[in-house]
Amino acid sequence: MTKPAAISIKGLSKSFVATRVLEDINLDIAPGERVVVIGPSGTGKSTLLRCLNYLDHPDSGSIRIGDLSVDADTASRADILALRRKTSFVFQNYALFANKTARENITQALITVKGQSKADAIARADATLRETGLADKADAYPAALSGGQQQRVGIGRAMALDADLMLFDEPTSALDPEWVGEVLDLMRRVAEKRQTMLIVTHEIQFAREIADRIIFMDGGKIVEQGPPKQLLEAPQDARTKAFLRRVS
């Protein structure tokens, strides 16, 4: 992996029709930092992630990853593509390519986007599938995999991209409880590599274990942030306290 890049988000805002979903988000993430975002449903956590790779186009604000800076006012198609190529995304509903096998889900972008040779891409995909414990499912199509297996492939697909920033959008929320553990285990292994991660999750215990910093969001804003111990055990804001009481 190349030298990890620092990430800086400034003044990010986003509205859907009449509702303001993100309001002036400012956030710096250090290389190798693992940041977890928690907060009530509908407070813009997922929208924040989706704005970072322009799946949703922010109304204003800028995003800098390493030497690439993209401003919402001036973002060209090429800027957006470049930004997406510096990030990887793990979806709540896995979103594996339905017409591709587990292996092809990983090799597809390595070949078409990163320009790797087919042999290199396959070698990388097989190594990733071993890491995710799915070597025996390489030739299976998503429809033949369990939710947990699909999400592990989804994480593998994102891992293989060697992105500067991995984004996880509630990766366990759509899973049956029996599959949550294996997906969190895999994410723990990713975190151990000091991969820069921004994770939206409701798994507070998991956040406590792996996060360098936890961010509490409410009403489209960052209300409070800090190391897990501080934020979870000594929250300052009344909204954070109320939320933590509800979920624990």
């Binding site: 997406r84 979806f91 979103a95 594996l96 986007v113």
Partner: peptide, 19 residues
Amino acid sequence: SQWEAAQAVGMTQGQMMYH
């Protein structure tokens, strides 16, 4: 989700449509 996944891995519109 298929469109979004293709965009998220950095495909161009042409690559997304074709693959």
